[in-house]
Design a protein around this nucleic acid. Sequence first.
DNA 1: ACCCCACCTTAAGAAAGCCTTAAGGATTCG
DNA 2: CGAATCCTTAAGGCTTTCTTAAGGTGGGGT
Lengths: 230, 230
Amino acid sequence: MKMNILVCDDDKEIVEAIEIYLKNEGFNVLSAFNGREALDMMSSTSVHLVIMDIMMPVMDGVRATLKIREKYNIPVIMLSAKSEDTDKILGLNMGADDYVTKPFNPLELLARVKSQLRRYTSLGSQVRVEGVFQSGGLTVNDCRKEVTVDGEAVKLTPVEYKILRLLTENAGRVFSIEQIYEQVWNEQPFSPANTVAVHIRHIREKIEINTKEPKYLKVVWGIGYKVEAF
Amino acid sequence: MKMNILVCDDDKEIVEAIEIYLKNEGFNVLSAFNGREALDMMSSTSVHLVIMDIMMPVMDGVRATLKIREKYNIPVIMLSAKSEDTDKILGLNMGADDYVTKPFNPLELLARVKSQLRRYTSLGSQVRVEGVFQSGGLTVNDCRKEVTVDGEAVKLTPVEYKILRLLTENAGRVFSIEQIYEQVWNEQPFSPANTVAVHIRHIREKIEINTKEPKYLKVVWGIGYKVEAF
DNA sequence: ACCCCACCTTAAGAAAGCCTTAAGGATTCG
DNA sequence: CGAATCCTTAAGGCTTTCTTAAGGTGGGGT
């Protein structure tokens, strides 16, 4: 499996230099020039490791790392011109997995990248992000059959779970009641009753703060339901 | 849960210095003065992280790290007087998770220890010591075919043991009755009888304080069973 | 502003799944 | 070969979940 690495630094030369070394080792490289760009990129692509400079305009590396940690569970290597011990310690305590100071030997960075990825993937199928769907603060972990909202676990019944899983797995896409029924119940003869609506209501009671104005599970008038894609 | 950290260095002063800082942060510290001692120690105790010096008599740090990697899946931080880039790269490629050069700031080492443990435990809280699985106060030692609850040994029958081992090894993951049946009995033709349910009941009688409200072996309605991941 | 239709809400009966118990058959071990 | 342990089966009770139906709410076209 090809690994996607996101390099985030406002210095284009450094980004390109790192890019060359990483690509040479068979990694896919994505680049961003500030923290916001990095986060945007991560929301649309699956990234396996981030190399993040600390000093950047728009959103600095520390804040970006904190944001990344909230949503994703991937290694972050911090890059910085500051070689002060206190900065290193701060960076590591912020949630970085490693800290490299400029100027650095590209081969050392490469070795550290591999080291992080080795651990990440060696922990096996169990950890694979496969089977985990999320949208905003909502996550659906399929192997644990567990749903969390802002980190808080929520207990759903089997049917409720299946519906929410379908919608979260395809966040943003709208499903008609008929489609939901067929997917979840595996049957064609669609029952005309409002069964699905009742389940939707129950799910909302469990995952939404305000049932009247749902943040995640939204209705699309005349068409069906969807989970908002963040 | 208290973390056990093994510090391995032939320089007693360094070991003691590190020990003070680690203990101050609430870690248990074990010490060894060469690679062989470290390996012996790990075979009898559950160790969560190793800090390993490279230059040592009897068995050097690189060979010891390789040996550790063969059997255990825990983070290793290498320690060395060599600050050459090539040594760092070599160490990291050998399987070390991090590389710190002497002299070092103890606080930086501490931050790196925490960083490694954070990642390690956030990935599912499963401490993998060859053949020993645990979740909360529940431990399944596969070498000894022994199960303990809060240190108290529990006697299970073979089938009960296999079921609990499967669930504890994959703590947090939900298994359907069919999956349990296939895994434990190695057969496809799934018996429709409630055999599994009865075994579950028996296991609960042995490991749970209150059978009505199980702490470890939980049911996930409409889906199956799991051992809670702590 | 009105009305229709789509969606929402509620509660209660029906269905499904889990738990418990006990007894007979299989297996192991002395 | 006999006894003890372990496994399986089956039936009934219990809890949770699903479905249905009836009535309420509110968007949006006319």
